[in-house]
Amino acid sequence: MTTKQLALVIDLNVCVGCHACVTSCKGWNNDGAAGPLSDQNPYGADPTGTFFNRVQTFEVGEFPNTETVHFPKSCLHCEDPPCVPVCPTGASYKRAEDGIVLVDYDKCIGCKYCSWACPYGAREVDQEQKVMKKCTLCVDRIYDPKLPEAERKPACVLACPTSARLFGDIHDPASDASRAIREQGGYALMPEWGTHPANHYLPRRKTEKRLHPDELERHDNPLKVDGLLPRPAPDEPALDDVTSW
């Protein structure tokens, strides 16, 4: 548990489902050294393609008491990844130094067994390269010394307009990601399979404003007049039923 485990923490309370993380991911990883993330028939009737990250939408509850949950889904970089031991060639591996689960595209034989072994459906075969692909946490970005330090983050994290995606070392208790998991009820997907996903999700929260009486008056009350306004008589006209002409 002391080694590094990089991960994403995704705040479902903040995600608006804009797909900026999807397009930025596709953009960055399509141009990478590992070759394109191919699309088939992209402008035709039946477009399909390989993506590392997809935003899905769910409706929770029964009309009219429903809630829309936008749910970005990518490889969770499990701490005990079931996809890695089943790989017959060793193309799928989990890096010891930072816990990222990667596929060596030059070793992959495209047998698809690892995708069967992933309960989350995080792996997709590239129809053109015929090898298995999945989120790399932008491993070709996050260590790039040529980039300014603030940009050494996965493309999806930088693209998110609502900052719904946090990136960090979840084994470092002081990291933003760890703190968010700890303090905002971060949870893992499908905990029943013991995969211990590194990526966590922050739950939807009830957002309501509670007003206390002292918030209706200014704290310092500089002129000592707050709360002292004369009230209009019941039969007199009033602007807002509180202040008098």
Binding site: H19, P47, R54, V55, F58, E59, V60, G61, L189
Partner: peptide, 26 residues
Amino acid sequence: STLATAIGVKHPRIVQIAQGAMGGSF
């Protein structure tokens, strides 16, 4: 596994609206 454990929302009625792609995927 259920949709509740899959997305971590503890509600008995969850329905998918969109899966993030319209032309299918792997």
